[in-house]
Amino acid sequence: MHERRLGTWLFALGILLFPLIVHSNYLLSILIMIGFYSLVCNGLTMLMGYAGQISLGHAAFYGIGAYTTAYLSATHGWSPWLSIIAGAVISAFIAFIVGIPTFKLKGHYLALATLGFGVIVYTCFKEFTSITGGMNGFFGIPSIKLFAWEFSNDARFYYLIWTVVLLSLLFSQNIIHSRVGRALRSIEGSEAASDAVGIDIMRYKLQVFVYSAICASIAGSLYAHYVTFINPQAFDAMLSIYFLIMVITGGASSIWGAVIGSSVFVLLSELLKEVVPLVFSNAGGEFEIVFFGVLLVVMLIYMPNGLTAAWKKITGKWRTSTTLSPAAKGGGGR
């Protein structure tokens, strides 16, 4: 129990100290991107890793958060704080409505339905030009202010996003080690047994879906206020799949998977953007997807539970073999 909290505090300390030690706007901007993705993946890890429900459409909520806050704050002059909350409420509502029929589906069908949902929302961003600006994009999203303090430079924004990430990680961690978290994990473990102990599976799937949508929405909103310009392509099906890659890379055996997966993804894509053009001079566009594709396939075939689980396996090998009691070994069975 205490070990769990200690890790969180150490992590928070590291986050706090980083900009004081490393003075690089480039690194800060990378860490900010990792922050956005960590926030999305935090919710998504709860949904996919703990409750075992796949989503191929979370870019939609990221986008809804971004466009709602952009529209309300830039077009209607709302305070960004309020518009971010409005985005989260709308995302939660949509997740709830869409979730009801969607989570009656399983496996392949669930994957297809969430993918379809993502494409529909993406198309709406593209086509409802009067609100979103269509493919030309949405300009002039204001930055966030706290009283006179404006989150306009990277260092300030860094603290803002990572505060939110930390709070959400804490929230998730609390969920996991509670009645609700066990209910979620039980769904992945065995739906028949969840039923048998009186867990309303549908209710928990919906709750965690709404939670993950809120996380994605807030991340998208913050992203919009950070970059001040958004266009639909930032929220297409590819992004949903990138989220999936991050969640799978990080793994779901701990909430840190979200941060680790996002970090690996962002750092790897930055690295590839630096290195690949040196080797292949004609590489352009989103060539780095080759590597992510390979990463995804290799992870799923050889490390299906993600990096955190692989790490636990390596470090935990001796521990489990010594603590397994003789009674457990000699219990018989088939």
């Binding site: 929230f171 969920i175 009645r179 609700v180 978290g181 209910a183 969840s194 102990v197 009186g198 867990i199």
Partner: peptide, 18 residues
Amino acid sequence: MTGAHRNMKTSFLQAGLR
């Protein structure tokens, strides 16, 4: 502990805020 679900009360929000 999961088995005891039905006699517990913690909701999603309560759990998250601990």
